[in-house]
């Protein structure tokens, strides 16, 4: 890559009086003032935020929440890929371990014991949603998250599931169970 030296032109006598920049500044500021000042008959061009709320478009990347399937079961299987991929390390999953509660849906052996997202750390990048093999975490439309303490801003599994709602999809574990039942193999007896 070559560099290009841009020559700085010496100011002309007229420019050295600062008059052109004075006039330029005046015209720019006046244009904006004329456009905005309400006593010149302008309507506000900004949105009055807390009263007026913005229509969040589809595909907006807001806060990530966990979702349940159409049977109301936790979709997350605690594979921890989101925890791994999370750039600011906002996600922290406690796996169930050998004695943990089995998944609350048919045939999936595992669900997280605890799933925490630190919303103060989260940067809403959406990598967790992209990496999730179970379609269990989605960036939803919430953008204004507030709390009165740091602890309050760490959302736990229960809260995330409640906020996340339901996301219907292919229930692959349920499908596997049905297939297995047809073959008279009963691989797992959870739920």
């Amino acid at each position: 890559m070559s560099t290009k030296v841009v020559e700085r032109k010496p100011l002309t006598a007229y420019e050295r009086t600062y008059l052109p920049s004075f006039l330029g500044g005046l015209s720019v500021t006046w244009k904006h003032f004329k456009k905005t000042a309400p006593f010149l008959g302008n309507k506000p061009i900004t949105m009055e935020y807390p009263e007026q709320k913005w229509v969040v478009p589809e595909g907006y990347r807001g806060a990530p929440y966990l979702v349940k399937d159409q049977d109301g079961a936790t979709k997350c299987v605690s594979c921890q890929l989101c925890e791994f991929v999370c750039p600011p390390k906002a996600i922290r999953i406690t796996p169930p371990g050998q004695d943990g509660k089995p998944a609350d849906r048919s045939n999936a052996e595992k669900m997280p014991k605890e799933f925490e997202i630190n919303m103060l750390r989260c940067i809403f990048c959406g990598l967790c949603q992209e990496v999730c093999p179970e379609e269990a975490i989605f960036l939803q439309k919430d953008y204004s998250l507030t709390g009165t303490s740091r602890e309050e801003m760490i959302y736990d599994k229960e809260k995330l599931l409640k906020l996340g709602g339901t996301h219907a999809g292919i229930q692959k574990w349920k499908h596997k169970l049905e297939e297995a039942s047809e073959q008279e193999v009963f691989p797992l007896t959870t739920t």
Partner: peptide, 8 residues
Amino acid sequence: AKVHKPKA
């Protein structure tokens, strides 16, 4: 359909 076998 896949062949299913015992798990766990």
